[in-house]
Structure formats: C-alpha cells, structure tokens
Amino acid sequence: MAAVFPQTEYPDVLIGLGKPDDAAVYRLDDERVLIQTTDFFTPIVDDPWLYGAIAAANSMSDVYAMGGEVSVCLNIAGFPEDLPVEVVGEILAGGAAKVQEADAAIAGGHTVTNPEPFYGLSVTGVASAASLFRKGSAEAGDHLVLTKPLGTGIITTAAKLTGSAESPASRKARRALGKPDIQPSHLEDAIGSMTRLNRASACAGRAAGVRSGTDITGFGLLGHAVELATASAADAPIQLQIEAGSVPALPGAFDYIKAGYLTRGSVRNPEHFGGHVAAANGVSAAHKTLLWEAETSGGLLLAVPPSGLGRFRDVCEREEQFFWEIGTVQPAREDEPVIRLL
C-alpha cells in the first residue's frame, strides 16, 4: 500500500504508511495536525459495560500516545443476532462513558452481524504540530517512564482459564498441580488499569517537552520499546537501557506467570523482536516474560528529556497520575542491540 500512496504525492500525510507509528497524522495547517486511529477487539472480561469501557480506552490510547487530545469517535461493532439488546446497550454505554470522560463525542458508527462480539472505536484527535510525540525522536540522555503497571494480558488470561467456563474436571486437575484460582482483587486491579485513560500521561508529556513515545499493547513493553528505539536510532545509534526490576507489575502477575497463564504474545513477541534485545545475566525469566507479554489498554512509554523531568513529575502529581522511571536512553554503537535489560 505504501507504493500506492507514496509520501511524495501526499505531503500533508505526515505519518502514514511510509513511517508507521501509533496513529496516522495529517497536517491541517502550520500549527495543528489531525490524528486518526482505529481499534477493536473481542471481549476480555465478562461484564459488558466494563468490556465496552476497556475497548474504548484502548482505542483512544493511540491518540494520547501521539501527544494529542481526542475530539470525535465512531463506534465499530459486531454482535451475534441472538445477543440480548440489553447486553449490546451495556457495551455501548461503557464505551460512551469513556469517550465522555475524554471530553469527546461519539458521532455515529457502524455495526455488523458477527458470530462473536467485537467492539471498538474509530478515533479522531488533534494536536499541536510542535508537541507531537513520535516513535522516532528519542535522544541519548532521555529518561524512560512508564505510566501503568504491566500484567493485564496475564491476569485476564488467568481469569479466562480459571473462571466460570472452566469445567469441573479441568479445575480439579489444575488445583492438583497447585495452580491458583484468579483472585477477584487482582482482576479488579487489572480492570482499573485498563479503564484508566492515558490522557493525563499525554498532558504531562506535552508539558515536559516529550518528543518520543508509544503506548504498550499487543507487542508488550519490549516489543513496543524496540519499535521506538529502532525508529530513533535511524539518525544516531542509541540504546534503551531498561531496569527490569524497576518495571511495575500488577498484583498477582508473577504468580500467574509461574502458573503458566500466558497469552500467545509471550512467545510471538520475543520470536519477532528478540534479536534486538540483550539481557543481563541477573534478569529473571519471570521478569522477561512480564516485559514480553501482551497488554491491553496499557500505559505510555515516554522518553522524557532531562530538562522536563521535574515538570513531568509536577503534572503527574497534579493529575494523580502514577508513573515509574524504568531506564534511560544512552548513546550506542551501530552493532549493539537497541534494548538492554539490566
């Protein structure tokens, strides 16, 4: 498709097929850009309202990952013909609540009949051209911050494997092996993380002069960090040095890793991106799994310039936004991996 729509013929498409990023960016004028993205997925929790809220927060996250604000959304949905209308209404209501929280509007959408439910949004946002976040703008000296703990994919998988759909025979066999049930409080913490918008994180990033960032979703922390690092290293070789022990995990995540409650991302992500990552001998297998695992509606990974770190902290404190400093961007040789786990 990049050959069909070459950048040279569409100069106002600032970020698109030629330079993949978290969202497409179109120049409106010298000062403003339009951000466009879309996302949807099948249910990951049983409660329909929460499913809609998580899907909407996840869909809007790419706009925040680019440093923008959400303006207007369209619903994208598919439902089985026999799904009760009350359930459909709850899914849409959950999504609507998150869009309202973003001070944006849902202006329409499209729904099809599908054997399995899916829901998400097409999202339009705006940003200042001068404050746009890109994957390819991290510089040596930047501080790496993460704005949500990891483990949503692990915990929701644990909930599926040990929840109401598990047969009595499977439950008995699993417990005989010492594998734990999902703890309701752990699932509640994961849902709380997934439904939290990345809006405050983006606000803090803009205030701090951030130029490089991404959100953490299906490729896991390390996969998305590789994308950010390789794009940034195109101009000058850099390496993201991540302190594995400083990366936050949701309560219960390591217990469920030990039990093997993992998604396919725990295998596919290192298979695809692993050649770009080196780990110190002291980094445990469990920490590596946590950092490779897929996330849903994860936080932002931002490269904060040293001069803006204090301002970033101040805005996060004002907005009651948690964040964790997990590493730094360092100069590197061209033959070094772009990610090093410490």
Rank of each mutant, 00 (worst) to 15 (best):
A2M: 13
E9C: 01
K19Y: 07
R32L: 14
L34F: 11
L34Q: 03
L34I: 00
T42S: 13
P43Y: 01
V45D: 07
W49G: 00
L50P: 06
A56R: 02
N58P: 07
M60P: 01
V63W: 02
A65K: 06
S71Y: 07
A77G: 09
E81F: 09
V88D: 06
I91Y: 04
A93N: 06
G95E: 05
V99D: 00
A105E: 07
A107P: 05
F118W: 11
F118T: 04
V123S: 02
G125K: 07
G125F: 05
L132M: 03
A140I: 05
D142P: 06
H143E: 08
T162V: 10
A173E: 12
R174M: 08
K179H: 15
K179E: 13
Q183H: 14
T195W: 10
L197M: 04
N198A: 13
R199V: 11
A200Y: 15
V210E: 11
R211A: 15
D215G: 12
I216K: 08
G223H: 03
L228M: 15
A231S: 05
Q239R: 15
L240M: 13
L250P: 14
F254C: 04
Y261M: 13
Y261P: 02
S266V: 14
A285N: 06
L290A: 06
W292G: 01
G299F: 03
V304C: 01
F312P: 00
R313S: 10
D314C: 01
R318V: 14
F323A: 01
E325P: 11
T328E: 03
P331Q: 04
